[in-house]
């Protein structure tokens, strides 16, 4: 299914505040360990890297393996420094990337 990733970032935050980020993306995270009904192995296809940047600067990156469940959810934190844009990128092993952005106003 080709749904857009979902992200939740507060629209405003006070400078220095540590805020919560929630993300979820549609992906089968096929581990390569499963077999199809006919017994043939289902080829591995996973997102292996997730990157969060804040005005272009990396805040958090994550490496994923076959043990991450399908439709991966990730919740983490970030410190508000200045108004701008958070960008989220999911990298598929096959080379595809999926992105989402969210703006934040820092007061």
């Amino acid at each position: 299914m080709s749904a857009k990733p979902r992200v939740r970032v507060p629209s405003t935050a006070k400078k220095g505040e540590v805020f919560e980020i929630k993300t979820v993306i549609s992906h089968s995270m096929e581990s390569g360990q499963r077999k199809a009904a006919d017994g043939s192995p289902i080829p591995r296809k996973i997102i292996d890297k997730f990157v969060c940047t804040y005005n272009g600067k990396e805040v958090m990156t994550s490496q994923w393996y076959g043990a991450v469940s399908a439709n991966p959810y990730l919740e983490f934190f970030c410190t508000a420094t200045e108004s701008g844009t958070l960008e989220f990128t999911w990298h598929d092993e096959g080379g595809e990337t999926y992105t989402a952005t969210a703006d934040i106003k820092v007061t």
């Binding site: 749904a3 979902r6 929630k22 979820v24 993306i25 549609s26 439709n71 959810y73």
Partner: peptide, 14 residues
């Protein structure tokens, strides 16, 4: 309880 945590909403958005 949280529509962000519930992956069903990927289908709902679509």
């Amino acid at each position: 309880d949280d529509d962000m945590m519930n992956p069903s909403f990927l289908w709902v958005d679509k």
